[in-house]
Design a protein around this nucleic acid. Structure first.
Lengths: 133, 133
DNA sequence: ATATCTGTTATATATGTAATATAACAGATA
DNA sequence: TATCTGTTATATTACATATATAACAGATAT
């Protein structure tokens, strides 16, 4: 899987990494049970510190997207992804609310905003490596 | 206008303040040309430091949502709000992409996601104090 | 068995952001 | 003249981010 970090971005490295791993899972590029690179090798590949990768893995494990097997190492959650928790619903609402407000003030219509949302959602599911669905 | 800050939130105070002011403009509760409280009085009302309020005002001024009049003080932009800039488009895409990916992984459908977006957009425009539109 | 790889933990350091505190300035207002 | 405005400067505290180095216990491969 291709991962690219922007060292200039104001988004923290561990957040960028989390985002791209979740996208990988969403698109199907990362399948349940599939092993991820070790914290050390991925850190070296990306040119960052092992602890930064470890932080991303740990947060994803904590939320149920990854598992750590003493034998298999770190793998994509094989027993079903976590559903829509109350915490996620609140985060979703908060973030959409902030976005929608600025969108409205800047004169973008409801339909434009909604179409953007739909288009991006599809984009993610569509970006599969050619397999599945 | 009612402003409430969550001191426990991980969202910075100045960001919470910015969000609520933009919501106020979007909803029509804050009208173009309307004066905002001084940095000192608002800071005291909210129980925070004057520099925190000043930071929010400055960022909003920098993006074109507010004006600073030597006479009238700080007012809501009277000469038309800024439109959809390239920077905003990129921020919108990035944020929606991250949200949509997690939404999809958690099993929320495209329609549910899109409906959330639409519902929240409407919610903001609807929360007017009873005036206008 | 030895060496290597795994995630994990601990400690330390450097840097930047967030938030507060005090003080002062120039322009406008009453 | 006294007061209020945004603005600037300086300092301090606290926290998040990211890195560096080291060590540990469990698993793997030679």
């Amino acid at each position: 899987m291709f991962i690219e970090l922007d060292l200039q971005s104001e988004t923290p490295l561990y957040t960028q990494l989390i985002d791209q791993l979740i996208e990988g899972i969403a698109s199907g590029e990362l399948k349940p049970g599939e092993p991820l690179p070790s914290v050390r090798s991925l850190a070296e590949d990306l040119g960052i510190n092992l602890h930064t990768v470890n932080k991303s893995y740990n947060l994803l494990k904590q939320e149920g997207f990854l598992q750590v097997h003493r034998k298999k190492g770190v793998i994509v959650q094989p027993d079903g992804m976590p559903g829509v928790t109350q915490e996620f619903e609140e985060k979703l609402r908060r973030t959409l609310r902030s976005l929608a407000a600025e969108t409205a003030v800047r004169g973008m219509t409801e339909e434009a905003f909604v179409q953007q949302s739909r288009s991006i959602y599809r984009d993610i599911l569509t970006n599969r490596g050619g397999e599945q669905r």
